[in-house]
Amino acid sequence: MESSTVPSSTTSQTWRNNLNNNPILQTVRQFLSKFPLKTYKPLCKSNELYGPRLYIWGPGWKVGQRTSFDQECLKWQTYLKIAQCDFDIRDANEPLMSPSGKLPILILSEGEVLIDELIKNYVEDTKESNKLGQLSEEQQADSQAFITLADTKLRHALLYTLWCESSNECDTYEKYGRRYANPIDKILMYQAKNAAIKEMLINIPVLNRDDIYHEASDALQALSVALGDNPYFFGQRLPTFIDAVVFSYLHIILEFPVTSANDLNQLVNKHKNLVEFTKRIYTEYYEQEF
Protein backbone atom coordinates (compact mmCIF):
# COMPACT_ATOMS: atom_id res chain seq x y z
CA MET A 1 0.00 0.00 0.00
CA GLU A 2 2.74 2.38 0.96
CA SER A 3 4.81 1.68 -2.08
CA SER A 4 2.09 3.10 -4.33
CA THR A 5 2.81 6.59 -2.96
CA VAL A 6 6.53 6.37 -3.78
CA PRO A 7 7.51 7.53 -7.32
CA SER A 8 8.04 4.61 -9.64
CA SER A 9 11.71 5.30 -10.41
CA THR A 10 12.58 5.18 -6.74
CA THR A 11 10.58 1.99 -6.40
CA SER A 12 12.56 0.27 -9.10
CA GLN A 13 15.78 1.59 -7.51
CA THR A 14 14.91 0.23 -4.11
CA TRP A 15 13.67 -2.94 -5.69
CA ARG A 16 16.99 -3.37 -7.48
CA ASN A 17 18.94 -2.52 -4.33
CA ASN A 18 16.90 -5.01 -2.35
CA LEU A 19 17.58 -7.61 -4.97
CA ASN A 20 21.29 -6.85 -4.97
CA ASN A 21 21.48 -7.01 -1.22
CA ASN A 22 19.33 -10.09 -1.07
CA PRO A 23 21.23 -12.56 1.15
CA ILE A 24 20.34 -15.52 -1.07
CA LEU A 25 21.60 -13.81 -4.22
CA GLN A 26 24.73 -12.74 -2.44
CA THR A 27 25.38 -16.29 -1.40
CA VAL A 28 24.81 -17.42 -4.96
CA ARG A 29 27.22 -14.79 -6.21
CA GLN A 30 29.82 -15.76 -3.66
CA PHE A 31 29.33 -19.38 -4.62
CA LEU A 32 29.73 -18.59 -8.32
CA SER A 33 32.86 -16.54 -7.75
CA LYS A 34 34.62 -19.71 -6.63
CA PHE A 35 34.29 -21.09 -10.18
CA PRO A 36 36.13 -22.09 -12.25
CA LEU A 37 37.89 -24.26 -9.72
CA LYS A 38 41.11 -24.27 -11.68
CA THR A 39 42.40 -22.00 -14.42
CA TYR A 40 45.14 -22.72 -16.89
CA LYS A 41 47.39 -20.40 -18.83
CA PRO A 42 46.52 -20.25 -22.54
CA LEU A 43 48.76 -22.31 -24.79
CA CYS A 44 48.67 -19.94 -27.73
CA LYS A 45 50.92 -16.93 -27.71
CA SER A 46 49.31 -13.56 -28.02
CA ASN A 47 50.07 -11.49 -31.09
CA GLU A 48 51.26 -8.25 -29.56
CA LEU A 49 52.58 -4.99 -30.93
CA TYR A 50 55.56 -3.41 -29.27
CA GLY A 51 55.35 -0.18 -31.21
CA PRO A 52 53.43 1.44 -34.05
CA ARG A 53 53.27 -0.68 -37.19
CA LEU A 54 52.50 0.51 -40.70
CA TYR A 55 50.73 -1.98 -42.96
CA ILE A 56 51.49 -1.24 -46.60
CA TRP A 57 51.51 -2.57 -50.12
CA GLY A 58 55.03 -3.86 -50.54
CA PRO A 59 57.80 -4.51 -51.23
CA GLY A 60 58.85 -1.92 -53.83
CA TRP A 61 58.93 -2.04 -57.60
CA LYS A 62 62.58 -3.02 -57.67
CA VAL A 63 64.07 -5.93 -55.81
CA GLY A 64 65.34 -5.08 -52.36
CA GLN A 65 63.50 -1.79 -52.06
CA ARG A 66 61.71 -1.22 -48.78
CA THR A 67 59.65 1.55 -50.29
CA SER A 68 56.03 0.67 -50.97
CA PHE A 69 54.94 0.35 -54.60
CA ASP A 70 51.72 2.17 -53.84
CA GLN A 71 51.74 5.96 -53.83
CA GLU A 72 49.42 6.43 -50.83
CA CYS A 73 51.42 3.97 -48.78
CA LEU A 74 54.73 5.50 -49.81
CA LYS A 75 53.49 8.97 -48.91
CA TRP A 76 52.75 8.01 -45.30
CA GLN A 77 55.74 5.72 -45.06
CA THR A 78 57.99 8.59 -46.13
CA TYR A 79 56.29 11.08 -43.86
CA LEU A 80 56.81 8.81 -40.86
CA LYS A 81 60.42 8.30 -41.98
CA ILE A 82 61.26 11.97 -42.37
CA ALA A 83 59.64 12.72 -39.02
CA GLN A 84 61.92 9.97 -37.70
CA CYS A 85 59.07 8.21 -35.98
CA ASP A 86 59.84 4.83 -34.55
CA PHE A 87 57.72 2.37 -36.51
CA ASP A 88 57.70 -1.05 -37.99
CA ILE A 89 56.74 -1.95 -41.58
CA ARG A 90 54.62 -4.91 -42.62
CA ASP A 91 53.83 -5.82 -46.22
CA ALA A 92 50.16 -6.56 -45.72
CA ASN A 93 49.01 -6.25 -49.33
CA GLU A 94 45.47 -6.61 -48.11
CA PRO A 95 43.28 -3.50 -48.26
CA LEU A 96 40.41 -5.31 -46.48
CA MET A 97 42.41 -4.89 -43.26
CA SER A 98 41.72 -1.21 -43.33
CA PRO A 99 38.52 0.39 -42.04
CA SER A 100 38.45 2.52 -45.21
CA GLY A 101 39.26 -0.37 -47.53
CA LYS A 102 42.58 1.26 -48.46
CA LEU A 103 46.11 0.79 -47.29
CA PRO A 104 48.11 2.03 -45.47
CA ILE A 105 46.99 1.75 -41.88
CA LEU A 106 49.06 2.59 -38.85
CA ILE A 107 48.29 0.45 -35.82
CA LEU A 108 49.50 1.79 -32.50
CA SER A 109 50.60 -0.53 -29.75
CA GLU A 110 47.40 0.26 -27.83
CA GLY A 111 45.47 -1.22 -30.75
CA GLU A 112 44.28 2.05 -32.26
CA VAL A 113 43.98 2.01 -36.06
CA LEU A 114 44.94 5.20 -37.90
CA ILE A 115 44.36 6.12 -41.52
CA ASP A 116 45.12 9.16 -43.72
CA GLU A 117 44.94 12.46 -41.86
CA LEU A 118 44.93 10.67 -38.51
CA ILE A 119 48.46 9.51 -39.28
CA LYS A 120 49.48 13.11 -39.91
CA ASN A 121 47.92 14.18 -36.62
CA TYR A 122 49.68 11.36 -34.85
CA VAL A 123 53.05 12.42 -36.29
CA GLU A 124 52.49 16.06 -35.34
CA ASP A 125 51.39 15.12 -31.84
CA THR A 126 54.21 12.74 -31.07
CA LYS A 127 57.27 14.17 -32.71
CA GLU A 128 59.61 15.08 -29.89
CA SER A 129 62.56 16.92 -31.42
CA ASN A 130 62.09 18.93 -34.54
CA LYS A 131 62.90 16.56 -37.32
CA LEU A 132 60.57 18.30 -39.73
CA GLY A 133 61.06 21.68 -41.34
CA GLN A 134 59.01 24.66 -40.19
CA LEU A 135 56.92 26.49 -42.75
CA SER A 136 55.63 30.00 -42.39
CA GLU A 137 51.90 30.52 -42.76
CA GLU A 138 52.29 31.77 -46.31
CA GLN A 139 54.48 28.82 -47.20
CA GLN A 140 51.95 26.46 -45.64
CA ALA A 141 49.26 27.80 -47.95
CA ASP A 142 51.59 27.41 -50.94
CA SER A 143 52.53 23.95 -49.78
CA GLN A 144 48.87 23.02 -49.62
CA ALA A 145 48.36 24.29 -53.15
CA PHE A 146 51.29 22.24 -54.49
CA ILE A 147 50.08 19.14 -52.63
CA THR A 148 46.67 19.57 -54.24
CA LEU A 149 48.35 20.00 -57.62
CA ALA A 150 50.28 16.76 -57.14
CA ASP A 151 47.27 14.91 -55.75
CA THR A 152 45.22 15.73 -58.82
CA LYS A 153 47.44 16.09 -61.88
CA LEU A 154 50.24 13.71 -60.92
CA ARG A 155 47.82 11.24 -59.40
CA HIS A 156 45.68 11.10 -62.52
CA ALA A 157 48.72 10.52 -64.67
CA LEU A 158 49.99 7.82 -62.31
CA LEU A 159 46.60 6.10 -62.13
CA TYR A 160 46.37 6.26 -65.91
CA THR A 161 49.84 4.75 -66.30
CA LEU A 162 49.13 1.97 -63.82
CA TRP A 163 45.62 1.00 -64.76
CA CYS A 164 44.80 2.24 -68.25
CA GLU A 165 47.96 1.64 -70.28
CA SER A 166 47.54 -1.83 -71.66
CA SER A 167 51.31 -2.34 -71.93
CA ASN A 168 51.67 -1.82 -68.17
CA GLU A 169 48.91 -4.25 -67.26
CA CYS A 170 51.32 -7.08 -66.48
CA ASP A 171 53.48 -5.00 -64.16
CA THR A 172 50.47 -3.66 -62.29
CA TYR A 173 48.99 -7.15 -62.02
CA GLU A 174 52.29 -8.50 -60.71
CA LYS A 175 52.11 -6.14 -57.74
CA TYR A 176 48.42 -5.72 -57.05
CA GLY A 177 46.87 -8.99 -58.21
CA ARG A 178 49.47 -11.76 -58.34
CA ARG A 179 48.95 -12.91 -54.76
CA TYR A 180 45.31 -13.92 -55.30
CA ALA A 181 44.20 -17.22 -56.71
CA ASN A 182 42.76 -17.46 -60.18
CA PRO A 183 40.01 -16.29 -60.94
CA ILE A 184 39.65 -13.99 -57.92
CA ASP A 185 42.68 -12.03 -59.12
CA LYS A 186 40.92 -11.07 -62.34
CA ILE A 187 37.79 -9.97 -60.52
CA LEU A 188 39.76 -7.91 -58.01
CA MET A 189 41.94 -6.33 -60.70
CA TYR A 190 38.84 -5.42 -62.65
CA GLN A 191 37.35 -3.84 -59.54
CA ALA A 192 40.56 -1.93 -58.81
CA LYS A 193 40.75 -0.66 -62.36
CA ASN A 194 37.16 0.52 -62.20
CA ALA A 195 37.83 2.29 -58.91
CA ALA A 196 40.84 4.06 -60.47
CA ILE A 197 38.83 5.15 -63.49
CA LYS A 198 36.02 6.33 -61.24
CA GLU A 199 38.45 8.38 -59.19
CA MET A 200 39.87 10.04 -62.31
CA LEU A 201 36.40 10.77 -63.68
CA ILE A 202 35.53 12.77 -60.58
CA ASN A 203 37.87 15.52 -61.77
CA ILE A 204 38.17 15.05 -65.51
CA PRO A 205 35.14 14.60 -67.73
CA VAL A 206 36.86 12.57 -70.44
CA LEU A 207 39.88 10.34 -70.05
CA ASN A 208 42.16 11.58 -72.78
CA ARG A 209 45.67 10.21 -72.57
CA ASP A 210 47.39 13.26 -74.10
CA ASP A 211 45.50 15.71 -71.90
CA ILE A 212 46.31 13.78 -68.74
CA TYR A 213 50.03 13.61 -69.52
CA HIS A 214 50.09 17.22 -70.68
CA GLU A 215 48.61 18.38 -67.38
CA ALA A 216 51.06 16.21 -65.46
CA SER A 217 53.88 17.81 -67.45
CA ASP A 218 52.65 21.26 -66.44
CA ALA A 219 52.42 20.20 -62.81
CA LEU A 220 55.97 18.80 -62.91
CA GLN A 221 57.19 22.06 -64.45
CA ALA A 222 55.57 24.03 -61.63
CA LEU A 223 57.03 21.74 -58.96
CA SER A 224 60.47 21.90 -60.58
CA VAL A 225 60.39 25.69 -60.54
CA ALA A 226 59.15 25.74 -56.95
CA LEU A 227 61.92 23.43 -55.80
CA GLY A 228 64.67 25.23 -57.67
CA ASP A 229 68.12 24.27 -56.43
CA ASN A 230 67.02 23.76 -52.85
CA PRO A 231 67.41 20.37 -51.17
CA TYR A 232 63.77 20.52 -50.02
CA PHE A 233 60.74 22.56 -50.95
CA PHE A 234 60.56 26.20 -49.79
CA GLY A 235 64.30 26.25 -49.11
CA GLN A 236 63.89 24.28 -45.93
CA ARG A 237 66.82 22.60 -44.25
CA LEU A 238 64.59 19.73 -43.19
CA PRO A 239 61.83 18.04 -45.21
CA THR A 240 58.14 18.73 -44.65
CA PHE A 241 54.91 16.98 -45.64
CA ILE A 242 55.05 18.30 -49.21
CA ASP A 243 58.42 16.61 -49.68
CA ALA A 244 56.87 13.29 -48.64
CA VAL A 245 53.98 13.79 -51.07
CA VAL A 246 56.11 14.80 -54.05
CA PHE A 247 58.66 12.10 -53.31
CA SER A 248 55.94 9.43 -53.22
CA TYR A 249 54.81 10.33 -56.75
CA LEU A 250 58.22 10.85 -58.30
CA HIS A 251 59.78 7.77 -56.74
CA ILE A 252 57.04 5.50 -58.02
CA ILE A 253 57.05 7.08 -61.47
CA LEU A 254 60.83 6.67 -61.68
CA GLU A 255 60.95 3.15 -60.28
CA PHE A 256 58.02 1.81 -62.26
CA PRO A 257 59.35 -0.55 -64.95
CA VAL A 258 60.12 1.48 -68.09
CA THR A 259 58.10 0.40 -71.06
CA SER A 260 57.38 2.11 -74.34
CA ALA A 261 54.19 3.58 -72.88
CA ASN A 262 55.83 5.01 -69.80
CA ASP A 263 55.77 8.63 -70.96
CA LEU A 264 55.43 9.79 -67.39
CA ASN A 265 58.94 8.56 -66.64
CA GLN A 266 60.35 10.70 -69.45
CA LEU A 267 58.38 13.71 -68.26
CA VAL A 268 59.96 13.49 -64.83
CA ASN A 269 63.44 12.83 -66.22
CA LYS A 270 63.26 16.19 -68.02
CA HIS A 271 63.56 17.90 -64.65
CA LYS A 272 67.01 17.16 -63.29
CA ASN A 273 66.33 18.84 -59.94
CA LEU A 274 63.28 16.68 -59.29
CA VAL A 275 65.21 13.51 -60.07
CA GLU A 276 68.01 14.65 -57.77
CA PHE A 277 65.46 15.47 -55.07
CA THR A 278 63.95 11.99 -55.27
CA LYS A 279 67.31 10.27 -55.15
CA ARG A 280 68.41 12.39 -52.20
CA ILE A 281 65.40 11.52 -50.07
CA TYR A 282 65.70 7.85 -50.98
CA THR A 283 69.38 7.66 -50.06
CA GLU A 284 68.95 9.66 -46.90
CA TYR A 285 65.91 7.92 -45.46
CA TYR A 286 65.72 4.49 -47.02
CA GLU A 287 69.20 3.37 -47.91
CA GLN A 288 70.81 4.18 -44.59
CA GLU A 289 68.96 1.26 -43.01
CA PHE A 290 71.17 -1.21 -44.75
Binding site: F35, L37, K38, T39, Y40, K41
Partner: peptide, 14 residues
Amino acid sequence: LPLLATTTDKLQKG
Protein backbone atom coordinates in the same frame (compact mmCIF):
# COMPACT_ATOMS: atom_id res chain seq x y z
CA LEU B 1 29.34 -24.07 -13.31
CA PRO B 2 32.63 -23.96 -15.21
CA LEU B 3 34.97 -26.30 -13.38
CA LEU B 4 38.17 -25.98 -15.37
CA ALA B 5 38.99 -23.15 -17.75
CA THR B 6 41.85 -21.27 -19.33
CA THR B 7 42.31 -17.64 -18.45
CA THR B 8 41.25 -16.59 -21.94
CA ASP B 9 37.97 -18.53 -21.97
CA LYS B 10 34.72 -16.61 -21.96
CA LEU B 11 32.63 -18.05 -19.16
CA GLN B 12 28.89 -18.15 -18.74
CA LYS B 13 28.39 -18.80 -15.08
CA GLY B 14 24.93 -19.33 -13.70
